[in-house]
């Protein structure tokens, strides 16, 4: 394939996109979507770098129009979009206007005998499918978050198309991050291994350090009453599936497990090596949480600082 265009928002690292595109295209161009006058972010080593300025209110339709015009004029066979929500919304519009095949959440790309092949999850993550592209052009979004970029080359400006005016944004507000376990990317959850309400502070700091929501087992809500029921994970609480579920001092009774077993990565800290939670953990830390948690805080802090 001759040309792939990687599209990402400024500020969000585009490393994964470029790396992925490189696997299948001889030339990779990077189109940065930036706010007017805003930062341009870093680009990985793309062959060329472009920037288009779109207002904060820019609609997916406007994005689709810009990218479509860009891909058309540059003759790109592959448009690779980052994982942000606005790209997911623009993708189908873009694919129809380019007459391209559409694939979302690709975890890998390869050049097959008959053209491009994308890999993606199927059936809630229990299977991987290889999707063969049967059109000359494809619009693909990838499943990866930010991957560090390594170059900050100058970018050539691209003129935005005229706003479509299809949608009116009536209001926009940033929500205070309340306990919203559903949909949380990371959750630090604790159980009766934490001995007193005061010790909860340690867990809260860990959650903060990891930018995670705070979850807990049922006794914390119902017997200790340290937290409200919106923090409870499990059969009679919330069912969650974050990228990271860190269970501290939770034994892992089935009623708890059914609420979190779909998490991507499960880490358990428990001083009982026979605790059932370890059976579902990717990483099990056998140790006293009163030692492990402060050390972990330190390890994370050291990295951050």
């Amino acid at each position: 394939m001759d040309l792939a265009v990687v599209v990402s928002e400024a500020g969000a690292d585009a490393g994964a996109g470029v790396t992925l595109a490189r696997k299948v295209a001889s030339r990779v161009e990077h189109l940065v979507i930036a706010l007017p006058g805003g930062e341009r972010g870093a680009s990985p080593a793309a062959d060329a770098r472009y920037v288009v300025e779109l207002g904060e209110d820019a609609a997916p339709e406007d994005l689709a129009a810009v990218v479509s015009a860009f891909a058309e004029s540059h003759g790109a066979q592959l448009v690779l979009l980052a994982a942000q929500p606005i790209f997911r919304e623009a993708l189908p519009l873009l694919s129809v206007s380019l007459g391209a095949a559409a694939v979302t959440d690709a975890t890998d790309l390869a050049s097959g005998a008959d053209g491009l092949v994308a890999t993606r999850m199927l059936y809630g993550g229990s299977a991987l499918a290889e999707v063969a592209i049967q059109r000359p052009r494809a619009v693909v979004s990838h499943a990866f978050g930010g991957v560090p970029a390594d170059s900050t080359a100058e970018a050539e400006p691209v003129e935005p198309t005229a706003p479509s005016g299809v949608r009116k944004v009536l209001s926009r507000r940033r929500l205070p991050s309340e306990a919203s376990l559903k949909g949380a990317r990371r959750i630090v959850s604790f159980g009766r291994g934490v001995r007193s309400k005061e010790d909860m502070a340690m867990i809260t700091s860990l959650a903060k350090a990891l930018d995670a929501e705070l979850g807990c087992s049922r006794p914390i809500v119902e017997d200790m009453r340290w937290l409200g029921s919106d923090h409870q994970v499990g059969l009679t609480g919330t069912t969650v599936a974050p990228d990271l579920y860190l269970a501290v001092g939770i034994s892992g009774q089935i009623q708890h497990l059914v609420g979190m077993r779909d998490s991507k990565v499960i880490v358990a800290v428990n001083n009982n090596p026979a605790a059932p939670i370890f059976e579902v953990a990717d990483i099990g830390v056998v140790g006293d949480l009163y030692q492990v948690v402060p050390s972990l805080l330190e390890a994370l802090g050291a990295a951050a600082g």
Binding site: A100, S126, A127, A129, V131, P273, V280, A281, G287, S295
Partner: peptide, 26 residues
């Protein structure tokens, strides 16, 4: 426009990797 050419299982088995030892190290 597309065709699923292969489907294969995701290894859903958990790592079960156990870390033991000095708290700071683990």
């Amino acid at each position: 426009s597309t065709r699923v050419s292969a489907v294969r299982p995701v290894q859903s088995k958990r790592g079960n990797e156990m870390l033991r030892g000095e708290p700071a190290e683990i």
